[in-house]
């Protein structure tokens, strides 16, 4: 069973590295969106630092949305998705592998470029670490939630906008808790409690989302 997990992750990564624009474009998008804000509202470091958490998290949400299409869409078109659904392993397990690979390809790069954005937005070091930790815990939840949305809309011709309509409201708690944690760090308060909440949500999402994704795929691919 672990072998099947690894095989799927390996295949996803191999495919992505052959088509590098798939990984790089959402990251570019993320960096560009964040860059737009100082250009739009001015470069006062205090103001930027104040709104940085919100900007970064909203940009991360939008970047995640962009990358969800390729998570199952290509597989749906070329038939490897239906083959995966016919594999002699539990589908919940296999979709977990897909989501994990998706996080490696989109969530992880966002984490890696976050120091650059911290510099752009004049974040202090303590605030940056809070940002980093919330991204570390929050982006996998986004991947899981988004996968439910993708799995529901994959068979539809115009699923893209619908995916955002479904997914964005559901991701509001992550946005709220993450920005609250970063705010708390800015004011020098403890944010362990908020991280624990995010962690609880991650655990909940890891256990429940694969079932929702598998059930949705069984509806969409039929």
């Amino acid at each position: 069973m672990f072998n099947a997990f690894l095989q799927i992750v390996r295949k996803e990564l191999l495919g992505a590295f052959r088509q590098q624009s798939d990984i790089l474009n959402p990251i570019w998008f993320f960096v560009i969106v964040v860059t737009l804000f100082p250009l739009g509202i001015g470069t006062d470091p205090a103001l930027l630092a104040r709104i940085a958490p919100g900007i970064i998290w909203v940009a991360a949400l939008l970047a995640a949305l962009l990358s969800f299409e390729r998570l199952f869409k290509d597989d749906f078109i070329d038939g490897s998705l239906e083959q995966m659904m016919l594999a002699p392993q539990p589908l919940t397990w296999l979709v977990s592998a897909k989501v994990f690979a998706h996080w490696l390809l989109t969530g992880l790069p966002i984490l890696l470029v976050s120091p650059l954005l911290a510099v752009f937005l004049s974040l202090q070091e303590s605030t940056f670490w809070a940002l980093f930790l919330t991204l570390l815990i929050g982006t996998p939840i986004l991947s899981l939630l988004g996968s439910i949305g993708v799995a529901l809309t994959i068979g539809l011709r115009k699923g893209g906008v619908l995916l955002s309509l479904i997914m964005l409201p559901l991701s509001i708690p992550i946005l709220i808790f993450s920005t609250m944690a970063i705010d708390a760090a800015t004011f020098g308060q403890s944010y362990i409690g908020l991280l624990a909440l995010l962690g609880a949500m991650l655990v909940g999402a890891i256990t429940l989302a694969p079932f929702a994704i598998a059930a949705s795929l069984r509806v969409s691919v039929s």
């Binding site: 539809l156 115009k158 699923g159 619908l162």
Partner: peptide, 13 residues
């Protein structure tokens, strides 16, 4: 928003 998402999804199929 959640309601509208459900209605939109239902109508899309």
């Amino acid at each position: 928003f959640v309601y509208l998402g459900i209605i939109a999804l239902y109508n899309a199929f």
